[in-house]
Design a binder for these strands. Structure first.
Lengths: 226, 226
DNA sequence: TTCGATGCGGAGTGAATCGCTCCGCATCGA
DNA sequence: TCGATGCGGAGCGATTCACTCCGCATCGAA
């Protein structure tokens, strides 16, 4: 119980990271119905190992939420640190969309909120409010847009129904195309659909198979492991 | 079996409409995990009545999907009938977002696709392609935007995590505010966040409680009936 | 090489929920 | 009053859930 317990702690840490990553991924796909078995399988560990680290499913989600709140606050502060108000706002939005507080929304209300989480959320809200106000002062943000509007838009863009479907069906070969398509969508939503582009759309135009494939019967259910 | 079977057919039709509406609502909230019991309860009928009209859960979803495809095609044609290319495109997008093919996405691949459905989908795709091309010819649509981009954006905007959460918790008093907030988000996504507004944002600015309330413990689980 | 300790994967468990069936009852025209 | 009809929901077997527990592989120490 002294300093001698450095035995294989690296593997422990690695497993823990894999567990958290797997939990976030599975949660994004299955929502609140995500099962511990699928999380453990995706992380490549047994359920026993999961329960040795987290006493309950809720405790895992709680930890996951705390990490997301930290990322969220970091992203806002990074945005504030940028000189260009618009670039800072976009940086925050992009980072939040990617690490997805929106994907954590389904578990909201399923566990107790700790004081630490409340404080992190408040600090994040303050930073975002400052980000929005600064953008308004520079007149680069549409008049009337509030911080709540921004947060809700981010939440709306956080989930990716297309990628979830692909993952459920195990169509990994289309994953890159789906990622590209999503980047375009986000760019459009942030920059606007009207003809007055802030630049050319990134990447290639997505093909129709992204739209048609999900209607085909899943020829192979997701192995849910490895 | 002749023309004399008009007995109470109005109530039957009313029940059927209630069933379809309930199914769409429950599906939007619970996704593919939607249970027949919750659908029947929300429609205010017993599961027996549901199974008298639809032999299986998949058959109900199939019918639901067919109706959505029809609405989808109608919306596209209505958009084409409008003189202003931009207004037509927005009309289609708004109608599609509201009647939500996106909320049907979770059941994609869970039942067989009939020929009628395939044909409706193809006709819809053609109409949307024409809508997009016309907007491009009039130079009112951002360069590089394809029909698939548009469809994916519509799908992205179709689901409403906020409203789903409210419904799950039974907070009906915030429903109007959530609806208003969603209208703003959609307007922003379609018009763009950058300072060059196409007009003032509609409705009132949403309050912070929309964002904080979902973290509060649900003081009353959804009664799921009536 | 042998031994105790440690953390591992996953079969097993009771509870909950699923889609679906079936039956008693209310409500109608005759 | 009586047969017919459609209704709501209790009940059924099957499935899935969160969680427990145990045999085994792998390590340092002797």
């Amino acid at each position: 119980m002294t300093a001698s317990r450095s035995w294989r702690s690296e593997e422990v840490a690695r497993n823990d990271r894999a567990l958290l990553r797997a939990a976030r991924e599975v949660l994004a796909v299955d929502g609140a119905h995500a099962s511990v078995a699928s999380i453990a399988a995706r992380a490549g560990v047994g359920v026993g190992s999961l329960y040795r680290r987290y006493r309950t499913k809720q405790e895992l989600f709680q930890r996951l939420c705390l990490i997301a709140l930290r990322d969220y606050l970091d992203a806002a502060n990074e945005g504030l640190a940028m000189d260009d108000p618009w670039a800072g706002l976009v940086h925050y939005a992009m980072a939040s969309i990617r690490s997805g507080p929106g994907s954590l929304a389904p578990v909201a209300g399923t566990f107790d909120v700790t004081d630490e989480m409340t404080e992190l959320a408040e600090r994040g809200d303050r930073a975002v409010a400052e980000l929005v106000e600064r953008a308004h002062r520079a007149r680069v943000l549409r008049a009337g847009v509030t911080a709540v509007d921004l947060e809700l838009l981010i939440e709306q863009l956080s989930k990716s129904p297309l990628q979830e479907h692909l993952q459920r069906q195990g169509r990994t070969e289309l994953y890159d195309a789906a990622l590209n398509a999503r980047e375009r969508i986000i760019a459009v939503a942030l920059d606007g659909l009207r003809a007055a582009p802030a630049g050319p759309l990134p990447g290639q135009a997505p093909g129709y198979e992204l739209f048609t494939m999900r209607w085909a019967p899943p020829e192979d259910e997701q192995p849910a492991s490895e």
